[in-house]
Amino acid sequence: MAAHITAASLGGPRFNDHLTNEGRRAVENGIWLCQQCSRLVDADDSAYDVADLIEWKTFAEAAAAVELRGYVVRKGRDFAALEAKMPELIEEMRTDLRSKPFTREIIALSKRVIYNPGPIPFFSYFHEDHDELLAKLQICEHYGAVYDVRRNDVPRWNLSEDFAEYLHGQ
């Protein structure tokens, strides 16, 4: 819904008495927000100042311009928050990556299975070592830490370069 960055009338959230009536109605003083965010922003105008709203609008317009050119804009995820959810698995990945810094493929297996995918190096993570391993790897995928490269019905992923850099840096 259309919302005002500074209030349209005296007494409204973030009212700016230096603006003219025309300035209050101008596109530059407008921002598109969902209904819930619009209410939230206006209910606590001290938590959301004019500078924050202008930054949001500027970013949203820049992202839209990039997307119109055929690119995808997505919010980065906090890998530290991911690590807090599954510290043992992430630490194992970090240790593995330190031993083989150019390996990116990971495979989820049972210890009862012997698997040889060929010459591509990979890390193995075992269901017996990590409760709900596939669910954890799916969450890693949602965070952009890994992406699915499944072949031959074998669950496998590649580490994203952003995540590999995070693991190297910690």
Rank of each mutant, 00 (worst) to 15 (best):
M1T: 14
M1W: 05
H4G: 00
T6A: 09
T6P: 01
S9M: 13
S9R: 15
G12I: 11
P13Y: 02
R14C: 07
R14H: 06
R14W: 08
F15S: 08
F15V: 13
N16G: 06
N16V: 11
E22P: 01
R25C: 09
A26D: 15
A26V: 11
A26T: 10
A26G: 12
N29Q: 09
I31W: 01
W32R: 12
C34K: 00
Q35G: 07
Q36I: 08
Q36N: 14
L40H: 09
D42C: 02
A43I: 03
D44K: 12
D45F: 08
S46L: 06
S46R: 09
V50C: 07
D52M: 15
I54G: 04
W56A: 12
W56Y: 15
W56F: 14
T58C: 08
T58E: 13
A60T: 09
E61N: 05
E61T: 09
A63R: 14
A64F: 14
A65S: 13
V66Y: 07
E67W: 04
E67I: 00
L68Y: 10
L68C: 14
L68G: 15
L68F: 12
Y71A: 15
Y71H: 12
Y71S: 05
V73C: 15
V73M: 12
R74M: 06
R74G: 02
K75G: 03
G76L: 14
R77M: 10
R77C: 06
D78L: 04
A81T: 06
L82P: 03
L82M: 06
E83N: 04
E83R: 09
E83F: 04
K85S: 14
L89R: 11
L89S: 08
I90T: 13
E91Q: 14
E91I: 00
M93H: 05
R94T: 05
R94M: 02
R94A: 12
L97D: 01
S99C: 06
K100A: 11
P101L: 01
T103M: 03
I106K: 00
I106G: 01
I106P: 00
I107K: 04
A108Y: 02
L109W: 04
K111C: 01
K111Y: 00
K111P: 00
R112Y: 03
R112Q: 05
R112E: 03
I120A: 13
P121K: 12
F122N: 04
F122K: 02
F123R: 00
S124W: 02
F126I: 02
F126T: 01
H127A: 09
H127T: 00
H130L: 02
D131F: 07
L133C: 09
L134Y: 11
A135G: 10
K136I: 12
Q138E: 12
Q138I: 03
C140Q: 02
E141N: 12
H142F: 11
Y143H: 09
G144I: 07
A145P: 05
A145C: 08
V146C: 10
Y147M: 03
Y147F: 15
D148H: 06
R150L: 08
R150A: 11
R151G: 11
N152K: 05
N152F: 09
N152I: 04
V154Q: 09
P155C: 03
W157F: 15
W157Y: 15
L159W: 10
E161Q: 07
E161V: 04
D162A: 15
F163L: 09
F163V: 07
E165R: 06
E165M: 11
Y166M: 01
Y166N: 01
L167E: 00
L167H: 01
Q170T: 09
Q170N: 11
Q170C: 11
Q170M: 10
Q170D: 01
